[in-house]
Design a protein around this nucleic acid. Structure first.
Lengths: 329, 329
DNA sequence: CTGAAAGCGCTTACAG
DNA sequence: CTGAAAGCGCTTACAG
């Protein structure tokens, strides 16, 4: 591989001078500059970022830790991140925990060993060891989607979003509203969205049958099975159901249709997430658009602020959501 | 930051020795080893990959160039890649050209400057400057989805897949088959899939009206408009349509439904790609499952072969596809 | 079994 | 305006 040393020799200057024209700083006469540039061009020399990083302590890479790599949520998030980072000359180093909690700590260390300039963490479950690892990391850091105190977060108001959906149903005249959630360990999607549902119902004294409240996992089948439980076991059949993700909602829709019931006449359905599916499924699904892409934008912004040492007091940034009303209600 | 030097001092050994226990090679007495390990643990020392790379010339990172970051195709590809690379201790550095051709060359150079151990390129359009840049790169390299001669490729048989779909339609009794493609600059999706359609029709002398063959871009709207052109302008109305992507097909379905026609009774529809949408759209869409995830697996395998200097003669690996027959035909 | 020294490819005070 | 030298944090022959 061709190095700065060889360029220096060919152009009959010192490595210092070559470095100066490379980085366009320090004085260097037009003459010499031209000579060096010519040699660089001829040789196709590309400086080693690695060597550079070792000296400058900047790598221009951002580590991103994802819970799942191939979901709409993740890919939209990464799109948002990439949009601002690419513009600033940063690349993204991707790691994927596949929902294995220990991997988060492993990757945190790995990213540290690679001297990334900053880290974005998207996670579903916060645990103590993770929080401790983060706090002693000393690298610019932003979490996304889940709140960790004392650390910069980009969040949605999951509680209110869920409440909004229930209130919409209530306004439309639905009274027997069932709920398909996920494990409450996931504070944002599991706990807060459920709390929003529960509170909205409580506020106007709508009763809830036990079996109306189901807990699934993040896939379509799970929505299907949860809906079956609800329909089979309830005394008072619900006339509406809120699912905390679109895929759960779509699974629920499948069951409802299979059971010979109509949406929304017999049972109205709402999901959350504004997945592409929600638009094209039939009937089209009422949902909440959380705009993960914007979360990516904001998170990148916050991280850049930290990296550049400005505005480091800001800890929480909330991203607006949008209720999309479609034919399933 | 804490370095190997400090560990050496604290453990009263040389840096050489610390390095040896870190990498678990060379002789080092149990005693000394324990002492060093203890200090490492106490201090939370994490060696700098950067410094290491500079010496060893290996970075354990793989550069991935994507044409679009937030598509199902990309995210499935990355999932496949990550699955094998993570296992071997490689991380993925992601770059996104957003379909801007010059960015490919820019990122190729950038990845070189970062001394990635290998590069995976997913691209839609091959041009001469790109091919030249690649050939002088001297880094293990694999392309995905498009064939570049003399370079390792992981491919589908786009031509045959398209033909299979047309033949299925013919077998089902459809005779007036229209086609929605994309620009032929994209050799795999644009040119080859069109050629498959054309040849299948020609082989049994099925006539094709000019306006049956439309060219769109990669989105739903474009499928909608193309279908409208077909229906409005054709003398003999087609009884089936093949679109080269699922989103084009779904756009076509939208138009067909809006026009008050039924699928598949009036017009049958097929797409390609086996997107999630294709399963849940109604009627469910007949399509080709190209398994991008498997492409990722195979591409990673091929690249690893190159990196490890084995099996470097293999240039092309074809991934099987699967025809998924559903209710739209 | 252990260590001193050179070197990976850069940048950056410092001196001139 | 230009260069010699030190140093970033590691690894690796080489010597003992």
């Amino acid at each position: 591989m061709i190095t700065i040393k060889e360029i220096a020799e060919r152009a009959s200057v010192s490595r210092t001078t070559v470095s100066r024209v490379l980085n366009n700083n320090g004085y260097v006469s037009e003459d010499v500059k031209k000579r060096v540039l010519k040699v660089i061009k001829e040789t196709g020399y590309i400086p080693s970022e690695n060597a550079k990083s070792l000296r400058t302590k900047k790598t221009k890479v951002i580590g991103v830790i994802l819970p799942k790599i191939s979901t709409e949520t993740s890919s939209r998030l990464v799109k948002g991140l990439d949009e601002v980072f690419a513009k600033e000359g940063y690349q993204i180093l991707l790691t994927n925990t596949n929902l294995v909690p220990e991997k988060e700590i492993e990757y945190l260390r790995l990213l540290k060993s690679r001297h990334v300039d900053g880290i974005i963490l998207s996670t579903t479950i916060i645990n103590q060891p993770l929080v401790e690892e983060i706090s002693q990391l000393k690298i610019p850091f932003v979490t996304v989607g889940q709140q960790i105190s004392k650390i910069s977060n980009v969040l949605f108001d999951d509680y209110q979003a869920s409440k909004d959906l229930v209130n919409l149903m209530i306004k439309k005249g639905y009274k027997h509203i069932a709920f398909i959630g996920v494990h409450e360990e996931d504070r944002s999607v599991g706990y807060l969205r459920k709390a929003g549902y529960l509170d909205a119902m409580k506020e106007i004294n709508l009763p809830i049958e036990d079996c109306w409240v189901q807990q699934g996992i993040f896939d379509v089948d799970s929505g299907y099975h949860s809906m079956r439980e609800i329909v089979k076991n309830s005394k008072q059949k619900p006339d509406a159901v809120l699912a905390v993700t679109d895929r759960l909602a779509i699974g629920a829709m499948q069951y409802i249709k299979e059971a010979g019931l109509s949406i929304p006449d017999d049972i109205a359905v709402a999901g959350m997430g504004a997945s592409e599916l929600s638009r094209f499924v039939s009937p089209s699904l009422t949902t909440i658009d959380f705009s993960m892409e914007e979360v990516g934008l904001e998170a990148a912004d916050l991280l850049l602020d930290q990296i550049n040492g400005r505005n480091t007091h800001e800890k929480i940034r909330k991203v607006e959501y949008r209720l999309i009303e479609r034919s399933s209600i």
